[in-house]
Design a protein around this nucleic acid. Sequence first.
DNA 1: TTGAATCATACGACATGTTGTCGGATAAAT
DNA 2: ATTTATCCGACAACATGTCGTATGATTCAA
Lengths: 190, 190
Amino acid sequence: MKKNPAITAQTRQNLIDAFWELYCTKRIEKITIKEITTRAGYNRSTFYEYFTDVYDVVEQLENNLISKLQEMPMQQLSSSGDPFQLDALVRMYSDHSGYLAVLLGDHGDPAFQRRIKASMKPMMKEALIAQGAKDGYELDYTLEYALSAMIGVLSYWFNQENPPSLEELTAILGELSSSGVMGKLMGLRD
Amino acid sequence: MKKNPAITAQTRQNLIDAFWELYCTKRIEKITIKEITTRAGYNRSTFYEYFTDVYDVVEQLENNLISKLQEMPMQQLSSSGDPFQLDALVRMYSDHSGYLAVLLGDHGDPAFQRRIKASMKPMMKEALIAQGAKDGYELDYTLEYALSAMIGVLSYWFNQENPPSLEELTAILGELSSSGVMGKLMGLRD
DNA sequence: TTGAATCATACGACATGTTGTCGGATAAAT
DNA sequence: ATTTATCCGACAACATGTCGTATGATTCAA
């Protein structure tokens, strides 16, 4: 009886869900393990069977999320003509906006944004170099520039009162990136 | 004998300094008040004469920093031809890089980046509208785009192993912004 | 100038709540 | 019936926030 995946997975998910409800309302350091387990209907000790501490829960959550994020754009990478995958990025963000808006928000995890960028850069870089972009620090900084801008705008958009439509948003992002970032990148060809 | 500014300011600063040394090495939730006061050479209770809790320290620190950041670019706003104050931004960041790199870093405060943007947007917006940019949501999103990109790149730059020189950095930022963001903004004139 | 009153500053101690780690109870599988 | 995964109760150690109190500097009257 090594582990019963059905039961443990359920318990783990119950704990994660309870944590997430709390995390949406307050910063992580104000969340106690007792709160999580009470809400999920377990003894406090049970928490330690699944996580080392409260930060371990966020980390596992982020890992799941990043795995999912990495799958999606890969499929379209070859077919699309846009190396920045603007559509894919925006759709991806919308699909997981519930988690992303909080993790990238005011009491989210500051390391998460860097993790997202780090997970997307390699495949973007690869695609761009395949399209003729020149490798070097300029490419790195241009990618950092573009990803920071995209993520920043998407977060801003999601927390707006009366946000513009997704089409309007995509239009603005497209204009800004194609004239600025993309122009620069196409000038970085060999 | 309301308050003795000389003494209290010194004690407050000692506590802030002690906190900062700890904050540079580990995330805030692992910092105890006892650690701070012991390091600063005070009783633990003394901490509560100056701050309500550990987060209050960061908040006061951020307030000081934002005040300073808001002063600088104002002076040059009229003379410079660049409405984004690229030079001023980069210089400003370098001047306070010690604090900014940590606050914007992996175990920093996720709300701080939004606070910085919020504090800079009004004056940038004002300057841009004075230069003929058209007010509207497109301007807001373009500003968000540009500021996110700048702050992202500057943070990235500061945490690099072998970073390019400040001149090279400014050159890249200038190219990306002038063709993309600035181009867009000049197209938003009335 | 001096001495006493006053008050800001810093401290010690207490009650409460959180943490992480035991060993043990329960229930299901073999 | 035995074994073992899963969950629970209890314990010691530590952090928190709030008291009341000691100290020592400033003020002002004699």
